[in-house]
Amino acid sequence: MTRVRRWLPGLLLVTPSIVAIAVFVYGMLGWNFQLAMTDKHDEISEGKFVGLTNFVELWDQPRWHISVNHAIVFTLVFVGGALVLGWLLAFLMEKGIKGEGTFRAIYLFPMAISFVATGIVWRWLMNSGQDERAVGLNRLFDSIGLDFLQWEWFRNQDWGMAAMAIPAIWQMSGYVMALFLAGFRGVPEELREAARVDGCTEWKVYRYVVLPFLRPVTLSALIILGHISLKVFDLIVAVSGKQIITDVPAVFMWVAVFDSHDPAKGATIASYIVLSVAVFVVPYLIWSVRREKH
């Protein structure tokens, strides 16, 4: 009896969330994978099991290749950019700048904005008009004599998605900064001093003492940014709408479900998005579980 009393309240407390997660996360995921393996290509048909046919056939579609390429470019630029910029801001902050609290707040503010609002502002900033038709950033470049910097931004056929990553970097680098700043603060001062006593230059202190401490923070940042990036939808739709030139898997999925009325295809794309995020998250989970055991 006393034993039951020990674990029962705890179990009762977490049961609602276990049930909710089982149904609304894993139940829905399973349902989605099941749907992706049927031939339910319109709303009316029942859908027969067809195995992985949909997963294979998707690769025959030129649009899928384009949206995958776009997702890769976007992810590389966004994750890389936000990590570097966030690290740099944290580094400067750590050097003991005056009014650190104010700067920290300013850099963190963009986090509070939704991607939709960011997208609408940046659509204007990244307007593709040039010279006398320039507005936004192109106008700025034009008026300060840097007109060679003007370009089509997200309407560029090859590197448009790199431009699309700029608003995302702007929005998330403050958050990465906060993560890194916490990481920097976690490095014991004695270790740095010990290194200095041993004759390390300031650069070497960072390279061999501080950076190894930041590894877990970097990994967390990478996971968080990576999954945001692979699922990106709202930013793209706010900036450019549902255009092929900025197509990504999530937008393609929306079009497949609501415009093409093809549930199985939409579910297939959704499955690929989940799998690509899993590639990021699962190794991290394994790694952190192992670390906790130590």
Partner: peptide, 17 residues
Amino acid sequence: NQPWLASITEAVGLFLG
């Protein structure tokens, strides 16, 4: 119909590239 239009939209979008 809507699926047909979605295919046409996609074809035109790809053509622009």
